[in-house]
């Protein structure tokens, strides 16, 4: 019961954060909305006994990613409220249809069964501790872990290539 209450509270927080992001005029508010959603999700992870994931969620998302976002917002200088202006009605309607439709479809599709077997959590003893996760990660998933090196290399090289403007460099642009 207590779990349910916690869940409901943070689910509401997550949704509220999401709605804030959707509607906030000021990008900074939107970022804050997203941030709260992420925290809420981290709480969910805790509820699901995925402690490592919860920790990483807080560190990477709330810590790194959102900071980066806020930084860029400041850098570009769009931290003012922006009018929605001429956003056409059809766009709004379509968005509503798509989002609600998507959600409704999913709920409808899974109205009986979302997951195989019982609806209740099958293995409450599964604990996403560092040890458990590490065993899996560095056991079966080692090669994948290593492969993510490429991704990170790309991220580094790509960011440099895009954002690094040494003085007087000509890059073929006209």
């Amino acid at each position: 019961m207590a779990e349910a209450i916690v869940f409901i509270i943070f689910a509401l927080v997550a949704i509220a954060g999401g709605l804030t992001m959707l509607t906030a005029r000021n990008p900074v508010y939107a970022a804050v909305g997203l941030l709260s959603t992420m925290f809420a999700i981290a709480i969910m992870y805790v509820l699901l006994d995925a402690h490592l994931v919860a920790a990483v969620q807080v560190i990477i998302y709330a810590g790194a990613v959102m900071t980066l976002f806020l930084f860029v917002i400041m850098l570009i200088g769009v931290d003012r409220a922006q009018a929605y202006g001429d956003r056409p009605l059809i766009q709004k309607a379509m968005t509503g249809v798509v989002a609600v439709g998507f959600f409704a479809t999913l709920v409808l599709a899974g109205r009986e069964v979302w997951v195989t077997g019982s609806d209740a959590f099958g293995t409450p003893d599964l604990n996403g501790t560092i040890e458990n996760v590490a065993k899996e990660l560095f056991g079966n998933w080692t090669i994948v872990f290593l492969a993510s090196v490429m991704l990170l290399t790309i991220a580094a090289v790509g960011t440099i290539a895009l954002a690094h403007f040494p003085s007087g460099e000509e890059d073929g642009a006209s």
């Binding site: 994948v144 492969a147 991220a155 790509g158 895009l162 642009a173």
Partner: peptide
């Protein structure tokens, strides 16, 4: 493995995002 497929997909996609915008001073790019 589906997650690895996704990993590969993203690896390639992210590099292509960069390649597409490599001529960053060109509006089109």
């Amino acid at each position: 493995n589906l997650v690895v497929i996704f990993l590969g997909l993203e690896t390639a996609s992210i590099s292509f995002y960069v390649v597409a915008g490599f001529l960053r001073r060109q509006k089109g790019s």
